[in-house]
Write a protein that binds this DNA or RNA. Structure first.
Lengths: 233, 233
DNA sequence: AACCTATAATGAACTTCATTCATTATATTT
DNA sequence: AAATATAATGAATGAAGTTCATTATAGGTT
């Protein structure tokens, strides 16, 4: 007499719903265990699906990861342009972009780690949707710099790409200990510090007379602050 | 009739020699295929050893990687202090440190990738020898900055840690496309650009005539008062 | 030179996963 | 109610890391 293991009840859902379920489960498990230590069986279980079923909707494990990160990224970057439109002044706008990056890392360290470790270093990264999202996002930063240059506040003789690399490189380096779970960091203070350092640089400012950055610019910045305050409630 | 597969000749070497062989093979294979796509069987074959033998000398695959990177790192950082002692001036010394980092990445992109991707993001990284090597190495950079501050050339009101993160973050961000095999970069020019940007910052340098009382500061303070008034209660 | 002994080295077995695919079940259409 | 399309299953496959009982050998001892 052979005992037959009872087949699990098969619940048939719409393609969209299944995909959503699997991706939600994937996000959870990946967030909790990382990529390599997250068995597909865990994801399948959490999604109420058998392992093999995942392959109907995703090419492989990595494909699932990529799509999970992609959807997360889209949601995350959905509103930055709207937010930014309410902020005036080069310094404030730049700070917002940096602050946002820091806050994202602070809120979702695990997913950021996955993004840094498994997406961005992949050979196919520049063909990824995440790459393009990021591209547009950092382009915004470059636009802010460009505008600063046009207004005469910022130097025009520096490669924009390098400035972008400096800003985001600095932000990420700063957050590594946090990403490894070793130390916390203050989002607000770090944002302030990074902006200050990027804008002012390391060299001492005045060589002879105590003038500092030119007065017209500083007045304009002050006015922009007032302007920003009265923008929208 | 059962055919017996002939046992391979067993060559007995000294512990040190075997370890060296395995690590050499590991470095080669890891460099060529990365970490995940490098089967232990490849390494074993190249080292003239059976897979199981690797486990006599290394806890596991990751342990092998860590030790391979560690030895490489040691060799790489062996002479920087000597070199640096021959270089004078804050700017030049800083440039040397940055140049070195860039050159390492340019010469060994694959190993750098492994270091960035699999060592530095690991939970145990700060207990690694590589961590300490890096620590001492970047401390050198901080010392250069400190000396610059003492000599009155650099600002003293910026967190040294942040400066370090800015420098190395910028360098690495700049090299990512190269690390993905997408584009080359000019070590010399990049070194120049990074030093320049770190030292001078983005703000335009005021070179006009000296002014009297600091009007701008007073206005800024006034605006900050206004700003504070409207802050959330 | 023959023997001993510590330990280097082997190779097969084990385990864990990702991945495939032939089979089965179910919702929808005819 | 039957036909059809396709969602879902679960067992099988295979690759790769890891373990370990067994075997062989270099170097020292008698």
């Amino acid at each position: 007499m052979t005992s037959v293991t009872p087949r699990r009840p098969v619940s048939r859902l719409s393609r969209e719903r299944r995909i959503a379920d699997i991706m939600a489960a994937g996000r959870e498990v990946f967030r909790e265990k990382g990529y390599e230590d997250a068995p597909l069986s865990d994801i399948a279980e959490k999604a109420n699906v058998v392992e093999g079923s995942i392959y109907r909707y995703f090419d492989n494990k990595r494909d699932l990861l990529v799509k999970v990160i992609e959807v997360w990224y889209e949601g995350m970057l959905a509103d930055y342009q709207e937010q930014l439109s309410g902020i005036r002044g080069t310094r404030n706008r730049l700070r917002y972009m940096i602050w946002r990056h820091l806050k994202t890392i602070h809120d979702e360290p695990a997913l950021c780690n996955l993004m840094f470790q498994f997406l961005r270093s992949g050979k196919d990264y520049s063909k990824t949707g995440v790459f393009n999202l990021n591209r547009n996002y950092t382009r915004q930063t470059l636009d802010i710099i460009s505008e600063g240059v046009r207004k005469g506040e910022l130097r025009g003789d520096v490669s924009l790409r390098l400035v972008r690399d400096m800003i985001y490189g600095c932000v990420e380096h700063t957050t590594w200990a946090y990403l490894r779970g070793e130390a916390d960091f203050d989002v607000e203070k770090t944002a302030d510090d990074v902006v200050e350092l990027v804008l002012s640089g390391l060299l001492v400012r005045y060589t002879g007379s105590p003038t500092g950055p030119d007065i017209a610019t500083r007045l304009e910045n002050a006015v922009e602050k007032l302007e920003a305050m009265t923008e929208k409630p």
